[in-house]
Simulated scan of single mutants.
Amino acid sequence: MGKRSLLLSVVGILVLLVGAWSAWWFYSARLAISSFQDWVSEQRSQGYDINFQRIDTGGYPFSLALTATRFGVAAPLRAWTVSGDALTVTFKPWQLDRYQISSDQPLRLSAVMIPESQKTPVVIQDLTGDYLFHRDGAKHQLRLIAADVSGPNGLTIDTIGVSGTMPFHAPQDRDADIMTGHLELVGAKMPGLVPQGLSEQIEAAILDFTVSGPQPNPEFSMAKRLSDWRDAGGGVEVSKIALAWQDLNLSGDGTISLDEYLRPLAAFGMQATGLSETARRFEEAGLIDRQIRRYIEMGVGLLSLGSGQAGMVRFPVTIQDGILSLGPVALTEIPPIVAGAGPLPPAVPAPKTGEITTFPDLAPPPTVSDETLDAGSNQMQGTDPQAAPAPAQ
């Protein structure tokens, strides 16, 4: 066989391979669109409202991308809604258990649990992440990184990472896990949550939690779902909560449930450094008087004697009967999660002052990592939050 014939044979084989691969790619694209439409029909039958203008395909030749344009998704009873101009899901035709999610167009999010968001949605300028479906069908894992986030009441977040794992089927056992999750944010401003006169900048925060209990019917109202979940023994175990805010470095763990009025019922063991400096800032802002600040400084000095670290104290934080308390000091009233969902709670008694109570001896919970403390000036890199390890794949 001459060189010319050999060359023609190689070219012919390559053309056949390209043609076969192109046919497989377009077949996979049609199959993916059909599967997506089936999924939309299934979600609509469960009460979700899903709409989109069209579905575009791309990514040829080595990946397949489906882009939903002008889309909107609303949960039953509009407990939350998400909408945007474009959202792209990308995957490999030979790897159908992992999907990359991205959007470089603004996304709008509102939820009943986020006050004022239905009037002023949370806007996410950039979103990336991935969705992993285990082949055994046991669980799903979703990880998202959102950048340049803004919302109601002046809320802004430089970067926020969220990851969670959910079972494939909704659990009915009261002790089963509905979801495990990890949340980490860097560079947040929350003017609506910070008293006037204090810094609105939160350098970093971390939350690791597990929600347990049977999953209520999604077609019920938010109040009904929360009540059913509470009555069936549902609760939240927070394995780690950490906050870096100005001089305050706070960390701990605890549990959360709901009382009969759908108010949080919580008990946390915390440890912190920077309480004396924080008390001074509260005094400068006019939130406490000089005598209270001196009491706090005295307490910090006494409680940190055996801690092995100057200025580090351990203390309980509780929410009971609608009152948030730091040790023996009542700080503020906590309203029901869903206003007007049930009978009015009893009148809150005036906080007692001047009590001297010994603090329980609590085991030291984890502290905010050094990476997190430095993250205020360096945004997270890649697709995983860097200040704390992402859940294992």
Rank of each mutant, 00 (worst) to 15 (best):
G301N: 14
Y60N: 10
L287K: 01
P385K: 00
Q379A: 10
G213N: 06
I114F: 06
Q309C: 08
Q118I: 05
G234L: 03
A147W: 03
D38L: 08
M222A: 12
W39H: 08
G274V: 02
T81M: 15
P121C: 12
I337E: 09
G234N: 05
A392G: 02
G197C: 01
L373V: 01
Q100Y: 08
S369A: 14
R30P: 00
E277G: 09
G354D: 10
A111Q: 12
A285T: 03
H140S: 12
I337K: 06
Q100G: 09
L287Q: 08
L302P: 01
A188P: 01
A390R: 07
M113V: 11
S103T: 03
W39D: 08
D56R: 10
G129L: 06
S63F: 05
A272H: 02
G84D: 07
R263L: 11
G327Y: 00
T156V: 06
L250D: 02
E203P: 04
E203H: 07
R135K: 13
L250K: 01
G187F: 02
G376T: 04
T57K: 07
E283N: 11
K189I: 04
Q271M: 04
W25H: 06
P93E: 01
F220L: 12
I356S: 13
F62K: 05
A244D: 15
V82T: 09
Q309W: 00
R143A: 14
P152T: 07
M380L: 07
E260Y: 00
L198Q: 02
G308K: 00
S150C: 08
P121L: 09
M166Q: 09
E237D: 14
F71N: 02
Q172T: 12
A347F: 11
I145S: 10
E284S: 12
A176T: 09
V123C: 13
S369L: 08
Q271F: 07
P364C: 04
I160M: 14
Q95S: 10
S117P: 04
K352Y: 11
V11M: 15
G12D: 12
M179G: 00
G181N: 05
I296C: 07
E237I: 03
V11D: 11
S304Q: 10
H169F: 11
A223Y: 11
H134D: 13
P191K: 08
D97R: 02
M380W: 08
T156H: 02
D173H: 05
A74V: 02
R314F: 02
S35G: 00
A170L: 13
G301Y: 01
Q105D: 13
T156N: 04
